[in-house]
Design a protein around this nucleic acid. Structure first.
Lengths: 258, 258
DNA sequence: CGCTACGTTGATAGGGCTCAAGTAGCGTGG
DNA sequence: CCACGCTACTTGAGCCCTATCAACGTAGCG
């Protein structure tokens, strides 16, 4: 469309298409990779382990940046705050993910990182990391890969927000979540939402009512299933179908050929 | 750290509120900082200079990642592509900005970087950078700062897309652009848009018609002024007023979500 | 001069936000 | 134990903003 050149064959964003077709094995492989990464970090660096509980801050906006963090267990949200009190959830973090990169730019965090449930987070002195990284470039590259992933994920969510209608946006959110869980060796049936509708909506650029309606529709269509009356726990029994739903929303054109 | 607490006083994202009140001096200072950063990079590393013209690719999605890039002059867009041919502009780059971080995650780029006008870009071997960075941690920290800025900017645009109505989104876009120009020592009156309405809309998550209407309204309200009939060049004679316009659009939202 | 790309403007429809009412779970205190 | 308040979730009605479709104006260029 805009380019003067025509396109070369290209790989695309993994998120949507990554649907867990081979189920277990591939996820287990990813899970082992994550475990291996964590081990390498723990071996190469002196990390400080902390147990956090729901609502605990890992770091806070405005505080000086001295450490980076790696999630060992649990789930975390990263929240960007503006002076007038509005908040925007800009990321979710799971086992193996790094946190705190937002402090690199100005030596000061501009986000909060908050635990969504009980978990363990490791903190790593940035200075120590720089030194260790100079002895061991592979370690530095490891961190760079994590940053690259963060940038890629941010872009994916930007695209999702820009292009998907509400229902598909929620479905995409659930897909990504299921993938994240599966990649950590967790089951995707019987998962508990650790975020309120308001938080999900905030994250997706929707109101809480729209999220609620979208989930009701997905449930009516059999793509998800609520297991409790409070509607916080749900079955994601068919993630590929969810992914399909997202894909169909993207390209209303049939297009069996590319 | 790790308080369960409710909010402490906090500094906020700079982007919107950064309006150029002291005009010249501060911008010139930033401009000198950028020049100094470029000089440090050129001194510490062997960079390969390349002149590009409008439409030239700096790198392409799918290609192996080997180099990072730094903009010396010109303006670039970073475009994320998906298999079905849809494109999404995910970033704009100016003098002093780094490009190519999207390749770090998988050793393969997943975006195109395209020149919007004539410019000069430097390429830096990533391996060489890792080695140089191990001798000179400050150099590594320099790159990390750039990555931190990229992450912060991505979040800002996510927030903008999520929360601002169309007119304000366009106004915010113009503000950010004016700031970027001013910080590079360029004048903000009589600037030439190097992007079509379609590109701007794509970047902002709007249709080209909506962008066109928004700009017409901004012009009617005296916030911007077109200088040619083709409407590609415009006066940004009062950037603070534009920033105010954005802020007002934000205010009436009291926000729920603790 | 026609062709193409780009931009503007109008009419219309629809998706999501807003406002509002109602339900369910849960902890607290009488 | 139940009433009460609180928070979270759902659902409905109406409206507004933006996408869509369409027509037209303009500039650049072979």
């Amino acid at each position: 469309m805009f380019q003067t050149a025509t396109c070369a064959p290209r790989t695309s964003r993994p998120s949507l298409l990554h649907a867990t077709f081979t189920a277990g094995e591939q996820d287990q492989a990813v899970s082992r990779q994550i475990a291996a990464r964590l081990e390498r970090i723990r071996d190469a660096l002196t990390v400080q382990r902390r147990i956090v509980r729901q609502g605990d801050f890992v770091y806070q906006a405005g505080k000086a940046f001295t450490h980076l963090f790696v999630v060992n267990t649990g789930m975390f949200k990263v929240v960007n705050l503006s002076r007038d009190g509005r908040e925007q959830i800009v990321g979710l973090k799971y086992r193996g993910d790094w946190m705190g990169f937002d402090g690199l730019a100005e030596q000061r965090h501009d986000c909060d990182a908050v635990a969504l449930d009980t978990g363990e987070v490791w903190s790593i002195s940035y200075d120590a990391l720089l030194q260790a990284g100079s002895r061991e470039p592979a370690l530095m590259a490891e961190m760079h890969r994590a940053m690259g992933h963060e940038i890629a994920r941010d872009r994916d969510s930007l695209i999702s927000v820009c292009t998907l209608p509400a229902d598909a946006r929620v479905a995409d959110f659930l897909c990504n979540w299921a993938d994240a869980l599966a990649h950590r060796g967790l089951r995707t049936d019987q998962v508990t939402l650790r975020m309120t509708r308001a938080e999900i909506g905030n994250y997706l650029g929707l109101t809480l009512e729209t999220v609620s309606r979208a989930m009701s529709r997905l449930s009516r269509d059999g793509l998800i299933r609520f297991v409790d009356k409070a509607r916080r726990e749900l079955h994601l029994h068919d993630v590929p179908a969810l992914a399909d739903f997202v894909r169909v929303a993207v390209e209303p054109a049939p297009s069996t050929l590319q």
